[in-house]
Design a protein around this nucleic acid. Structure first.
Length: 210
DNA sequence: GCCAACGTTGGC
DNA sequence: GCCAACGTTGGC
């Protein structure tokens, strides 16, 4: 079961070997930036089947709806991990479908448990196993999320990009992490971005105009 | 299936 | 601690 979460990220490849390097892990910096005032987030998952290490990573918004609740495991990127550590119970997030026909935001979820160790990193059999993480000193964390509701319509990546291209620095999406840091699987969402996208989703496709 | 962007690793 | 090589993300 703990395997269908659709999360991945750079560096997941727990390449064997390299026993030489035993340094202290300075890579995991504390990350000073903004205080943890943000309370909206974006989570990427893959709605279409794809095998990683023999395990299907598919996890769609419908899957979350069915399961009602899920552990967001499998994140193997420091920045994304740090982002998850800032989350609070009750925070809302967008559910984003990636690596699929029409990538985009499809729904809303809620954080229902703050960050705790991602046990899939301890499991040798798991595709996201990381020998550098152990129960006494966990390297990777996950949060639990629960289904809230779908958006009234899908807000595609293309639509967000188009808006940005059209309005440039005047767009509320100008600094959106999804667009600027496209490879992060978990990102913060600013209030202005959150509000704008929610509003977009309420509009019809035709009247969305500019 | 290609490949640009970019994060990570590890030699030096 | 730099940076080239490498591996992954994820749109197209």
């Amino acid at each position: 079961m703990a395997s269908k979460r659709a999360l991945r990220s750079a560096g997941a490849a727990a390449t064997e070997a390299a026993p030489k390097r035993v340094k202290k892990a300075p890579a995991a910096s504390p990350e000073p930036q903004e205080p943890s005032t943000a309370s909206h987030w974006l989570f990427k998952a893959e709605p279409e089947s794809r095998l990683v290490g023999g395990v299907d990573v598919k996890f769609s918004f419908d899957d979350l709806k069915k399961e009602h609740q899920a552990s967001w495991d499998g994140v193997r990127n420091f920045e994304a991990r740090n982002t998850m550590k800032k989350m609070n119970v009750g925070d809302l997030g967008f559910f984003y479908h990636s690596n699929c026909k029409t990538p985009g935001i499809v729904g809303i979820l809620k954080v229902c448990k703050t960050a705790y160790p991602d046990h899939t990193a301890f499991d040798k059999k798991h595709p996201y196993y990381d020998p550098k993480s152990d129960p006494d000193n966990p390297k990777w964390f996950m949060v639990d999320v629960e289904y809230v509701r779908p958006l009234k319509r899908l807000i595609s990546l293309q639509e967000l990009k188009d808006h940005l291209a059209k309005h440039g620095s005047k767009s509320p999406l100008n600094e959106m992490a999804l667009l600027r840091r496209s490879r992060l699987s978990v990102t913060p969402v600013r209030e202005s971005e959150w509000d704008f996208i929610l509003k977009l989703a309420e509009e019809n496709e035709e009247e969305k105009e500019d």
